[in-house]
């Protein structure tokens, strides 16, 4: 199943549609406003935390009418207020193409600081070529251009 689309959030509710790339079966999820807010109230990050929470992150991020001098944690400025929207947006921004194990292994050898750019270029190339799967043949075709 691949994430196909997300609508919302509208008044705290959003819909998410997954699609089977083999048979086109689709499944939708609908988030509930109050449950979403309860998760948000826990101060946890859906999808897991890569970094430790900033001190008083929940308070500084979610309090309305706070003093202008109160520093809002950096990652909260740009992140979605909704814990589910945030993780879905990240997923939508991420690749919707499937990568074979061999292609993933080759990508892992690309230096980390240029990996996102290389991945984007490979995926753009695959999409333009009408491919649903990035395999080593796609990587080979890009090899000359990107040196991977």
């Amino acid at each position: 199943m691949a994430l196909q689309e997300a609508c919302g959030p509208f008044e705290g509710t959003m819909s998410i549609v997954y699609r089977c790339q083999a048979c086109d079966y689709r499944m939708a999820m609908l988030t509930n406003q109050m449950e979403t807010q309860m998760v948000r109230s826990l101060g946890v990050k859906i999808g897991g935390r890569a970094r430790e929470a900033a001190p008083m992150e929940t308070l500084r991020t979610n309090l309305q009418g706070k003093r202008q001098e109160v520093a809002v944690p950096d990652r909260a400025k740009s992140a979605s207020k909704c814990p589910f929207t945030g993780v879905v947006t990240e997923a939508l921004e991420a690749s919707q193409l499937q990568w074979t194990a061999g292609a993933q292994a080759r990508m892992a050898r690309v230096p980390a600081f240029v990996r996102p750019m290389v991945q984007r270029n490979v995926e753009d190339y695959a999409a333009q070529s009408g491919k649903m799967v990035v395999d080593e043949s796609v990587m080979d075709a890009m090899k000359g251009q990107l040196g991977i």
């Binding site: 008044e11 705290g12 979403t36 807010q37 309305q64 009418g65 909704c82």
Partner: peptide, 10 residues
Amino acid sequence: SSAVLWEAPS
């Protein structure tokens, strides 16, 4: 006089 309110869709 600020009331304590928390960000929420509603």
